[in-house]
Write a protein that binds this DNA or RNA. Structure first.
Length: 352
DNA sequence: AACACCTCCAACCGCAGTAAT
DNA sequence: GATTACTGCGGTTGGAGGTGT
């Protein structure tokens, strides 16, 4: 009901606007103001439908529109608001002076969405991607039954998962299997069986074996998410703070030791007040925590913990994935996320 | 240089909500 | 209350320009 006829059915022009048309529209609106879009094009001498005129004005010609690249602050605000509001582009645009909903929508679809996907975050739910959780399940089971899955077994799923993550997982798995062969003494077996979820063993063991425990921590964490999702069907709507729970039980997250750094993607800035004004505190808290649920947490390092000089004994892999320098520089929250510290001796490219 | 492929963004489309009659 | 007109919104498309081969 109420749909105006399509422009071209009335012989009206479609497609890109010319400078002359723009000027006619601007002149008319400056004289008469906007509104009455149905009759405006006729009065302004434009062979366009009212809808097209309104769109051209609101998305491009309006004098208060800010053109140009989005700042990092704007980008962070968009992500924050989207985590609370979803695809309410007009509401998000209202919080970003000078930006139109169309512009924000485009920016989201062409940049931010891809960025979040690269980070292993579902851009719709702002939670870790389920496919990665499934990988964690796979890896987790393989750790305790290494005969079921060898590194070559990962190759078949390469099309599903981020290849860099797969390479790393494969390398870690190889190393894991080797370590199991070496350390399969009865004492060690007992410790492996009983100590997997005990923080002290985790951390002490990590100190002595930098390969085994990061992936255990990673897979346990992801498994915890996976288990929660499977046992709480409603959890997708009201996800718990699994990372906090994991912290409490395992005390693996320890910024002071730099082992399991919580990622700050720029969510904890002055814009937090915007979130709090739009949603209750729990919701906002959820948004923060969700973003901190990086599935790569245990494999990552902060710049402070991954100081990697050229002659370092470890190799730092940065997943540029063909992105240009500008993107990388602007990518404040990806910067830490895609940086892996891989212990010496691991061949992350060795599964080709 | 030519072609294919990719990215980005302005513009379009259709639906829904609301005001006017 | 029913119908019509208008506006706003979100999803999608198409083409220009950029990049890779």
């Amino acid at each position: 009901m109420g749909n105006p006829p399509c422009c071209d059915k009335n012989g009206l022009k479609k497609g890109p606007w010319t400078a002359e048309e723009d000027q006619k529209l601007i002149d008319y609106i400056q004289k008469h103001g906007h509104g009455r879009w149905r009759t405006l094009p006729k009065n302004a001498g434009l062979k366009r439908c009212g809808k097209s005129c309104r769109l051209r004005w609101t998305n491009y010609l309006r004098p208060d529109i800010k053109r140009g690249k989005f700042s990092i602050e704007e980008e962070e605000t968009i992500i924050q608001l989207h985590s609370v509001l979803g695809n309410k582009w007009s509401v998000i645009a209202a919080r970003l002076p000078g930006r139109t909903d169309n512009e924000i929508k485009n920016y989201w679809n062409t940049r931010i969405k891809k960025k979040l996907l690269r980070m292993g975050i579902d851009p719709v739910t702002h939670s870790p991607r389920l496919d990665l959780l499934e990988l964690s399940s796979l890896l987790s089971s393989s750790l305790y039954n290494s005969s079921q899955l060898n590194p070559s077994g990962l190759h078949g799923i390469g099309s599903i998962f981020n290849p860099n993550f797969l390479n790393l997982a494969t390398a870690l798995l190889s190393s894991q299997n080797k370590n199991l062969e070496i350390s399969n003494t009865p004492e060690n077996v007992q410790q492996n069986q009983t100590g997997n979820f005990q923080c002290q063993n985790q951390y002490e063991s990590y100190q002595g074996n930098q390969v085994q425990n990061p992936i255990q921590a990673c897979t346990q964490l992801l498994q915890a998410n996976l288990n929660h999702v499977s046992t709480n069907p409603t959890s997708l709507n009201t996800p718990p703070n699994l990372w906090q729970e994991y912290d409490r039980e395992n005390i693996i997250v320890s910024n002071s030791k730099g082992f399991f750094p919580m990622q700050n993607y720029g969510y904890h800035d002055s814009n937090q007040s915007i979130i709090n004004s739009l949603a209750d505190q729990n919701q906002a808290c959820f948004s923060e925590n969700i973003i901190n649920m990086s599935p790569f947490g245990s494999l990552l390092s902060t710049p402070s913990s991954s100081s990697t000089p050229l002659n370092s004994s470890s190799t730092t892999y940065v997943n540029n994935n063909g992105r240009n320098t500008e993107d990388i520089e602007r990518d404040s929250y990806c910067r830490n996320t895609l940086m892996f510290d891989v212990p010496n001796g691991l061949n992350v490219n060795g599964c080709a």
